[in-house]
Design a binder for these strands. Structure first.
Length: 821
DNA sequence: GACTGAACTATACC
DNA sequence: ACGGGTATAGTTCAGTC
């Protein structure tokens, strides 16, 4: 018997003699790689009709015990049946716990249970690894003390596993240990064709602790200037072998890439197949396996024993809504997170690269891995906390969307409620859910356009979560009909009712909010990266809970609850606006959970004590807080008509800090010229309180445009291709640009951001798209377009607040009229 | 050929 | 297919005169 400490990193399962086994790969505190083998009971639940009598029950159990299957070359059977008192969707039920031989057959065995007394069959669709974690409580990235014998030849293939210690688990207990330093290896490849496997891989860069290398078979003409990190190999085949060798030698816990599920790993596999070099990087010598993950979607690459992490996916779900970057490219993300950029190098086909340029290419390639590695280090605390909170393997956590995170959290916290898990919706159900009528959302106040002074900005803390908790909204608290002491809300013209007995979902959410508060407080007292990550993870989890209930793929789907939350939200938002106005303030604007209003000569102190008053009247855990005080703010009209535009305003505080929402300044599909000018105009207007300075500035800009004095880079318009090129019904400018790129063999695909500018064209030009040119194309920019379709629209409404018609200035003025261009 | 509203599309706000 | 609804605005498309 051997004892060791152990931190589980990667889980996978295998079958042996018809049964399921778990193989967990991890480390001990000395950094040795440890593998544990284990198994657990396999079962699902059959929920019984409440009217069933004992005699009938005995008969059913007897029949169930006789079920045997012999499919897929596997004999499986019901091994035993137990009767338990459980809860299902909050309702106490009698349920059969049906133990079977193999997890993979649970669904099929469940289908055999055609007894009218069995109302529901549940718990067969969690996946064996989730089932195991629930059963044995061996959670990813938490420390344990483990005991067991060295795994001998009992399991086939174990001796080929490249680990220091392999134990057949007998005893396990959780222990305290905060120390785990993950060993990562970041990688990046450069190729001659962006289509998977269609070009040669020219080089691969690798970065780990004290390790930086570029492997390549393309030699620089400048050999003497070898900077030590280059490993030259004979050809592409040797390149792949060198890659495999280094991965094996370094033997990391994490193989980290950026968009590597979609590019680097599948490319390596494709080239390895073509060149017949087995990509044996798994700890058992296996090759990466690609699958569609838990619920379909894009392919993910899995390496046995080494967790392949694609940073892009995690950054998209966990950070992108809070980021400034306009794209999630490695360059922009690195700039924002690390303050570092990619190396400036213009990629060309290898046949066009001159001898002395190869070194720049190597450096470029290496820098990508350096950035990836640094991003991984930066993001690690968040990955770790997400994994510990959601209690699923980090491979999945790093690829989850927020709804999957919410669901993981629920599944792993059902135990204390004695709840049987609800099933995942099947295909038809999803189709049906997707067709549901949209329920009404939040309330947005129509502002009166104008320039305002001395503004207070309040918002509700965790608006949706606080409503869900306060009003106990969820799938399991939704009532079929009205009962005494229930909450009644109208959703889509129908009344829905919720029980006031706290449900497990609102209770979990309440706990999430409380933990968030606690960690946020601890963070403010003594900040560190882990506390920040923990506080952040709970915040994101709480914020995603409302969307989860309205999401068609959710196990605990409940649009009635989401719809009720928005209905209640509208009521409190409007009510609060009324109270603010009744107290002598003037509401200017409100969107969902925020309200801005004029102080009307009252002091900030007064406003703050008024805030306390408002809070006393709010129910449950709902709470209003101060977002800030602002010196000035501007709201403008819509482009058409005179009414105030929603979701478009700008504020300035006493430190001259701007808060700009919705304006073209913040939209990436407008050219920099329009964005910059608008930003400056807003800044001047808010700082000065009038339009004079802006007007002078604008006149200058107009002259610059007319003189063709504007740099091309300020005229580039960037628009994302949101779908495959062929699916477009309307051929808009960016589609034309994308088509032209394709003609020129510039690879483009869905998701790419297309860049173009509008040029003057010789022939007759009716549509904007007739003037589209790619940035690298020659051509004079279309003065009329940039004035009329970019500059003027971006500032017109701002000047209109001061009763100034910009068109007159642009056209009139003894200068040429717009029409002449 | 000019004009108009609807459809399509992208992006932002919360 | 992989959180929700609300909102603005540009460009094209298809119909009218």
């Amino acid at each position: 018997m051997i004892t060791s400490d152990f931190i589980p990193i990667e889980y996978d399962s295998f079958d042996f003699q018809g049964r399921n086994y778990i193989r967990i790969i991890g480390r001990n505190s000395k950094g040795k790689r440890v593998c544990i083998l284990d198994s657990c009971d396999v079962y699902f639940w059959a929920i019984l009709n409440e009217k069933i009598n004992q005699k009938r029950l005995d008969k059913i159990i007897k029949r169930i015990k006789e079920i045997q299957l012999d499919t897929k070359g596997r004999k499986t059977k019901v091994e035993s049946v137990e009767v338990h008192d459980k809860n299902f969707l909050e309702k106490p039920v009698k349920a059969l716990k049906i133990f079977c031989t193999n997890y993979k057959d649970l669904h099929e065995i469940a289908s055999e249970l055609n007894f009218p007394e069995i109302e529901f069959r549940r718990g067969y669709d969690l996946g064996f690894i989730t089932h195991y974690i629930l059963e044995k409580d061996i959670k990813p990235l938490c420390w344990y003390e483990i005991q067991g014998d060295i795994a001998n030849g009992k399991f086939p293939g174990i001796e080929n596993l490249d680990v220091d210690l392999c134990i057949e688990l007998q005893k396990v207990k959780p222990i305290e240990n905060e120390n785990f330093k993950p060993k990562s290896l970041s990688y990046d490849i450069e190729t001659d064709d962006i289509k998977i496997g269609e070009g040669e891989i020219l080089m691969i860069s690798l970065v780990s602790d004290n390790f930086k290398k570029v492997i390549t078979w393309k030699k620089s003409g400048n050999k003497e200037k070898d900077w030590g990190n280059i490993e030259y190999v004979k050809d592409e085949e040797e390149l792949l072998r060198a890659f495999i060798k280094h991965v094996k030698e370094i033997s990391p816990d994490f193989l980290v890439g950026y968009f590597s599920d979609g590019f680097d790993l599948p490319y390596l596999r494709a080239r390895a197949e073509k060149l017949k070099v087995p990509l044996e990087i798994g700890l058992d010598g296996s090759q990466p396996k690609f699958s569609r993950g838990r619920t379909g979607g894009i392919f993910t690459g899995k390496v046995l024993g080494i967790v392949h992490i694609d940073l892009l996916k995690f950054i998209q779900t966990a950070y992108s809504p809070y980021m400034q970057s306009e794209t999630m490219s490695l360059n922009e993300v690195s700039k924002e997170f690390l303050g570092e950029e990619k190396k400036n190098f213009k990629i060309k086909h290898s046949s066009l690269i001159e001898d002395h340029n190869w070194e720049d290419y190597y450096e470029y390639n290496l820098q990508d891995s350096v950035l990836t590695s640094k991003l991984f280090d930066k993001i690690w605390p968040d990955l770790l906390e997400f994994t510990k909170i959601m209690q699923e393997p980090i491979f999945d956590i790093s690829r989850n969307g927020m709804s999957a995170n919410v669901e993981d959290y629920i599944i792993h916290n059902l135990k204390k409620f004695n709840e049987i898990p609800e099933k995942r919706p099947i295909h038809d159900e999803i189709l049906q859910r997707r067709q549901r009528e949209r329920y009404e959302g939040a309330f947005v106040f129509e502002p009166t356009p104008g320039l305002y002074e001395d503004i207070a900005f309040f918002d509700f803390t965790s608006f949706w979560p606080s409503i869900i908790v306060t009003y106990n909204l969820s799938r399991s608290t939704l009532l079929e009909k009205k009962i005494e002491n229930s909450t009644e809300i109208e959703v889509l013209g129908k009344k829905v009712y919720f029980s006031k007995k706290p449900g497990f979902f609102p209770q979990m959410l309440k706990e999430i909010i409380e933990k968030r508060k606690k960690y946020k407080k601890e963070l403010s007292e003594k900040p560190d990266a882990m506390k920040r990550a923990r506080s952040n993870a709970y915040k994101l989890l709480a914020n995603a809970s409302y969307g989860y209930m309205g999401f068609f793929g959710a196990r605990y789907y409940c649009p009635e609850a989401s719809g009720a939350a928005t209905a209640i939200g509208r009521i409190w938002s409007k009510k609060t606006i009324d109270e603010i106005n009744n107290a002598g303030y003037t509401t200017i604007y409100s969107d969902t959970d925020s309200i801005s209003f004029l102080l009307n000569k009252r002091s900030k102190t007064e406003a703050l004590s008024f805030l306390k008053e408002l809070n006393k009247r709010l129910p449950g855990i709902m709470e209003l807080e101060l977002e800030g005080f602002f010196k000035r703010g501007i709201w403008v009209t819509k482009r058409t008509g005179k009414i105030g535009a929603k979701k478009k305003y700008a504020l300035i505080d006493e430190n001259k800090k701007l808060k700009i929402r919705g304006f073209e300044t913040v939209r990436r599909d407008w050219c920099n010229l329009a964005r910059k000018v608008q930003n400056n105009v807003i800044k001047h207007v808010l700082e000065e309180g009038n339009e004079k300075k802006s007007l002078e500035y604008l006149k200058e800009v107009i002259n610059q445009i007319k003189k063709r004095g504007v740099n091309k880079e300020d005229l580039i318009i960037k628009t994302q291709l949101k779908k495959p090129l062929l699916e477009y019904k309307a051929i808009s400018p960016h589609v034309i640009a994308a088509r032209r790129m394709k003609e020129r063999n510039i690879p483009i695909s869905q998701g790419n951001v297309i860049e173009y500018f509008i040029a003057e064209s010789q022939g007759k030009k009716k549509l904007v798209r007739d003037g589209v040119k790619l940035p690298q194309e020659e051509g004079n920019y279309d003065i009329k377009y940039y004035l009329k379709n970019q500059l003027i629209p971006s500032v017109e409404n701002i000047f209109q607040v001061f009763d100034i018609d910009i068109n007159e200035i642009a056209e009139g003025k003894k200068q040429t009229k717009l029409g002449d261009f």
